[in-house]
Structure formats: structure tokens, C-alpha cells
Simulated assay, not measured.
Amino acid sequence: MAQMQRKLRSLAFDGLFALWTGSFALGIPFLWLVGRPAGAVRAFTRLWVRGVVFLLRFVVGLTYTERGRAHRQPEAGIIISNHESTWETLVYLVLFPDVAIVAKKELLRIPVLSWYLRHSPMIIIDRETGSAAFKMMLKQGRAALAEGRPLLLFPQGSRMLPGEPIRFRRGIELLYTQLGTPVLPVVVNSGDFWGAAHAFKQPGTITVSYLEPVPPGLPAASFTQTVQTLLETERPKLGTH
């Protein structure tokens, strides 16, 4: 019975999520007419995410908590997080209000949301273009940092199951060395509640853990090993569902 109730609540969330997202199509003409100001687009996007968080809490029973907020320093220009579900892609837009997410182009297939992401703007890359994708990521990353916006990277590239080893895709260490900014490692256990490990969303509390920032200037290989170790060491401390 409990499993059926969880399934029904998850399905109800999916329906309300679609309606809530569709309602934000009404904001696109207004934002277009006023010139698509990036700050206003991001404000609308945060409002949308807060609505999603509300639905998760009161329909699914899924909330979140934060650890280590003292480690969040203004000078940390790059945020690196493990990636287990859609949850962090959305909620990080509220936790880091002006963040520039480095995301794959597949996100642009999502109706309504894709418009907001494109005009926030986020850094959308096409991995198939190889070195050209990295050059674009570096150029747009520098521009975002110059505006005071941190970069958010999911170095695994795609969502992983909880417990899968965290292995960085190529290019992350080059971005770190080229941009020369501190890195804030972040760990989530969202996959224990929402992701490929479950047929439907589960109630509970997702933990977001901010770790001690990694300074700039490390050799590329040392940087990768350091951050991977930090993430892997912290992840078991968050517990499992």
C-alpha cells in the first residue's frame, strides 16, 4: 500500500510539474518584448524552480538540507558536483542564483525550460564538436566569471547511479587550469530519491554537502585526483535511502 501511495504521489507530481512548467510559457512573450534581460530571465527561472521545490515537498514528500555552507566563498568561481538526478540540475538554480550551468545541448529539447536556459544564459555545449566545444566553454566561462557568475560543472557528464565511481570527463582539468579560480566541490545524494535507481520519486531528504574549496594553481592531474577523492570520500557520509 505504501509503495502504491508513493507511486501515485510521484505521478501526481509529474502532472503538476508539466502544468507548472507550461504556465511559464506565458512569460516568454513578455520577456521577449522587454529585450530578454538575463537578470529577469533568471528571476523567472528561480520562481519556476521554487514552485518545483514546493511540489516536491507537498506532493512527493521530498525535501533537502544543506551542510557546510561556511565553505561557500564568493571567490569560488567553479562549482563541481556529482550528478545523480534531474533534481540538482533544477535546484542548483536557486542554491546558486546567478550560476552558469555547463550543460549538454540535449537540455534544449525540453519545451519552455529550454528558452529560459538559453537566455539566462547557460553554457550549452555539443560534445560531438570536440575541441570546438571546449573552446566555446572556455570563452563563455570567462565571460560568466567576468560578470560575477560562478560556473557549475557536472564532471561525470551524465547522470550516474548512486555508488558509481565519480570519474571526470576530459577537459575539466583544462578548464580549471585555464580559468585559474578556486573550485567548490559539492556532493548530493539525490539519486537515492529521484533517478534511474527508482521507478518513481521517493519521499525523504536530499543532502547537499559543500566541501572545502580547492585553490587554483594545482597541476591538472593533482587537481582531478584531489576533487575526485573529496567527492568520493564525502558521498558515503550522506547516507542512503
Rank of each mutant, 00 (worst) to 15 (best):
Tyr64Ser: 02
Ser120Ile: 01
Leu113Ala: 14
Gln156Phe: 01
Thr86Gly: 13
Val102Arg: 13
Glu164Met: 09
Glu75His: 11
Leu62Met: 05
Leu113Lys: 08
Arg118Trp: 05
Ile110Leu: 15
Lys105Thr: 10
Ser158Ala: 10
Glu66Tyr: 07
Pro121Phe: 10
Leu161Pro: 05
Leu107Phe: 09
Val112Gly: 04
Pro121Ile: 11
Ala100Asn: 12
Glu128Met: 11
Arg72Pro: 00
Ser131Thr: 09
Leu95Pro: 13
Leu62Tyr: 06
Glu106Asp: 12
Gln140Leu: 09
Ala143Pro: 12
Lys135Ala: 04
Gln73Gly: 05
Arg109Asp: 08
Tyr116Ser: 02
Ala133Asn: 10
Tyr116Ile: 09
Val91Gly: 11
Ser120Arg: 06
Ile123Trp: 05
Tyr64Trp: 14
Ser158Glu: 11
Ile80His: 09
Phe134Ile: 10
Thr86Cys: 08
Pro150Glu: 01
Ile124Pro: 02
Arg72His: 06
Lys135Ile: 00
Lys104His: 08
Arg149Ala: 02
Ile80Asn: 03
Trp115His: 05
Lys104Met: 08
Pro162Arg: 12
Ile166Met: 05
Gln140Glu: 14
Leu117Asn: 09
Ala143Arg: 15
Phe134Val: 02
Ile123Leu: 05
Ile110Asp: 06
Thr65Asn: 15
Leu161Glu: 14
Trp115Ser: 01
Leu138Thr: 00
Tyr64Cys: 00
Ser131Ile: 07
Val112Gln: 02
Asp98Leu: 08
Gly130Ala: 11
Tyr116Cys: 01
Arg127Val: 03
Arg118Asp: 14
Leu107Trp: 14
Val99Leu: 10
Arg67His: 08
Ile78Trp: 12
Val94Leu: 08
Val99Ile: 15
Pro165Gln: 11
Arg127Asn: 07
Val91Tyr: 05
Ile101Val: 15
Arg127Ile: 07
Ala103Asn: 02
Ile110Tyr: 09
Phe154Ala: 01
Leu90Thr: 15
Trp115Pro: 04
Gln140Ser: 07
Arg159Phe: 04
